[in-house]
Design a protein around this nucleic acid. Structure first.
Lengths: 226, 226
DNA sequence: GGTATAGTTAAGTGTAGATTGAAGTGTTAA
DNA sequence: TTAACACTTCAATCTACACTTAACTATACC
């Protein structure tokens, strides 16, 4: 039973669970009650749904005091949800989540734990253009020039490669339909840019706002007018 | 309603519809009754499910006489289903579809309309190794050497590029977890290899058998012992 | 200690939507 | 021109499983 796709699809298929997964796509860990709010349902109900998702190894839990934090158990889950997002009938992507601020989310957002949207795609294209990373098969390699670039952000690429997680790979952007940088490097890069206050996360959305500082840097380094 | 993921996930979530989608993953077009057999349900029921999938633009229909042939409306649907396949709990992939011939399907199969499985991945690696195609961003480019290679198979790569479909891209293999060649080129390549009788499709499975001729060619050209 | 908050578990209920049965349209082939 | 076949449509039925109500455990903080 557990080894069939039907098991996975039926899990993903429930509207409440879909909302949970869609919410977690911003890469943050959420508590059960936060998710209950997002999915607009009761604590008991969300608890039931979450336990099913954990049992199927789609989500992982971590207890912190009386809170329980839920997040994706592995990046493939996020990739699959994104792939499903790609199937949403086009029609100019009118209502993306039923929310309103779709312009912002198309422009600049997180995809699991890395940068996506128009800005994410442009940035990735520039990293390649400037020969900081280069595509090789279905992954990206970091060039010598790239290694020193990332070290400016306190990212030790050699150290990152040691992690179990895939180092750097393209992830298809569901609004731009072009690839953006994902994997351990993509995650680290976004993390450092958030730390450097180039970007700031928004409260209840995957949208990300670009700070004045970030705007300046994006233009100076990459000629991106964000 | 139609512009939300919940709409898509709930469609994919039904067990009968999942079976339909999983079956169509071999790239063939199936009639309604064939699909009813695969999904082990009644004609009326399959008709209802199919019409929902068509309405959502996940499937396309073509009438031929009194038959109706169903297939994926676009490659992204197949990619999404494959991405979900990647989420099946590992445990050595014991029961892949509930069928028995899992060894064959892991070794050599179709993924939508191109070659996948161990052989598909090895072949793709060799195409890169021999500099017939080269990765560039999230797509593959065909080298000059590659152009003449494919023309041996009566594939006019320049002509192929004119189609709306993405020319050549890596697709993550859900058994090998490595990329294999997809897109218009991947589809054309498999088509020609089937025509040349290197491979033959099997009746009710995505598994593909390698002919003696194919085995020879794979070794001679690519040093692949299949 | 006591009280508030976070989350879980168990039993009973309700309903969306899959399934079935019966009757229909259009197509093929004898 | 009849019969068999491929598929659809429309009610009627059935049922899995999400949701609720209620009682419970565990942690936090005063």
């Amino acid at each position: 039973m557990k080894q069939e796709i039907g098991y996975i699809t039926s899990l993903i298929g429930d509207p409440v669970r879909t909302k949970i997964l869609w919410t977690l796509l911003d890469g943050r860990a959420y508590t059960a009650t936060e998710l209950a709010l997002c999915a607009d349902t009761s604590p008991q109900n969300i608890s039931m749904h979450l336990s099913k998702l954990v049992q199927a190894d789609l989500l992982a839990v971590e207890s912190q005091g009386r809170h329980k934090y839920y997040r994706f158990s592995r990046p493939e889950v996020a990739y699959a949800i994104e792939a499903i997002g790609n199937l949403i009938p086009d029609e100019k992507h009118k209502k993306i989540t039923g929310n309103t601020n779709n312009a912002a989310i198309k422009h600049c957002r997180t995809c699991y734990d890395h940068l996506a949207g128009k800005v994410g795609v442009l940035l990735t294209e520039q990293l390649i253009e400037q020969k900081l990373i280069e595509p090789e098969g279905a992954v990206y390699l970091v060039t010598k020039k790239g290694r020193s670039f990332f070290s400016e952000f306190n990212i030790d690429t050699d150290e990152l490669k040691k992690s179990r997680r895939i180092f750097a790979k393209p992830c298809l952007d569901w609004t731009e339909r072009k690839p953006h940088l994902a994997g351990a490097l993509g995650a680290a890069f976004l993390e450092k840019m958030l730390l450097s206050d180039y970007f700031r996360k928004t409260k209840d959305s995957r949208a990300i706002v670009i700070t004045a500082k970030g705007r300046e840097q994006l233009y100076d380094r990459f000629k991106i007018q964000a």
